[in-house]
Write a protein that binds this DNA or RNA. Structure first.
Lengths: 208, 208
DNA sequence: ACAACTTTCGAACAGTGTTGGAGAACGCTG
DNA sequence: CAGCGTTCTCCAACACTGTTCGAAAGTTGT
């Protein structure tokens, strides 16, 4: 079967889902297509471009997931609901691929229509919400980068939390009483996320 | 001269500052210490651990820079000023090293006392500000991840912006009228940053 | 059928992180 | 001082990585 950019990106996503960001190699992508690594370079400038294309695809998926989520909203939904819907859709789409946040975090710099679509739609809801126009840019930027940052730290947490000895734990509690103490009560990540988005929306609301 | 963890991290930071994240190799770090790559592995479990140690050092520098910035604040400063001082100190410390944001973004998962210090102090100012205790954790988390996310996207912007042809520009303007239009008027990055921090603080303020 | 072009192959290059055994340097007892 | 054990360093090797390049194969138009 003929090799195309599209198929290469498909294979890239598949390998990516299996082995994660660090262990993705051109040879594995080529293997999945029953071809050789060198052949990919006729269709793709290099690994960087492939990663950028993959990031763009994730953005596109997130965009589609977002339109679905928005459509499912009741007509009486506030603009905060709209923002939250887009944010959680983005988060879910990124989390679908292990290490997906890293993919998005590393790729920018290349203009990606997928990322642009996400931004454009978010800008639209903020404008419709009545926020002053010259503030919407920063607001949308902040929210998008917050979501990817959140998932990034979420996915970087090692599967097995590092075993802390009792004495180390005691020392940590002494040096960081607030951090180890009653604060940061190990919330559910989902709860943490929705709260942080609410937080941002509250900030946005003060702009109008 | 004897090889120590400390000296290895020093050399790592030096090489890192010169060649950036992607091109940092154990052999270059070893070269700078007039030794061989294999020797590093007696003191450091691997490249990952070295990167984690370097990230911890950046956090420590950021912490020190933060205490200076806080000390320089007038006594009448609000808690928002305190938060902003810590945020900008962190941003400056990260930006000092090219690709420093990537360093912080990739390393977590390992408990770093440097990062803990930053978090602990920020928690302290939020508690002092009178925010409800069970909200401070999310708030501080959000702000820290926002700063690293901001610098990450800041440092990922390529030195030479990709040349857009006139027709491409026209198409972009049509598909993304808000994004390309009067919104997002290409603010100065510093201005954008301080605004985003203000935004977050405004959100925090609604919690009390 | 021939030529021109597009696509694939497969070997090669320089570089990577990491390992393991041989050896040197060191500090300590007798 | 000699001997010993531990701590540390060297160096060659391994299995990989992204990428390049000339030659071969496949495809298309005339």
């Amino acid at each position: 079967m003929k090799l195309t950019r599209e198929r290469i990106v498909d294979a890239g996503m598949a390998v990516f889902a299996e082995v994660g960001y660090h262990n993705l190699s051109m040879r594995q992508v080529a293997d999945r297509l029953d071809t050789h690594a060198g052949s990919l370079y006729y269709h793709v400038r290099g690994k960087d471009e492939l990663l950028a294309l993959m990031a763009d695809r994730v953005c596109r998926q997130a965009y589609d997931a977002g339109t679905e989520a928005l459509a499912a909203l009741p007509p009486a939904a506030t603009w905060q609901d709209h923002v939250a819907a887009q944010a959680t859709a983005l988060r879910r789409s990124i989390k679908q691929h292990p290490g997906g946040a890293r993919l998005l975090a590393e790729s920018p710099g290349t203009l990606s229509t997928g990322a642009f679509s996400l931004m454009e739609r978010l800008l639209g809801t903020l404008v419709d919400a009545g926020l002053p126009h010259d503030q919407c840019g920063v607001a949308a930027d902040t929210l998008l980068s917050h979501v990817t940052g959140f998932v990034l730290q979420e996915q970087n947490q090692p599967t097995a939390p590092p075993a802390v000895t009792a004495e180390l734990h005691a020392e940590l509690c002494e040096r960081f009483p607030l951090l180890m103490g009653p604060l940061a009560p190990r919330l559910d990540q989902d709860e943490k996320f929705t709260r942080s988005v609410r937080l941002l929306c509250a900030g946005f609301a003060t702009l109008s």
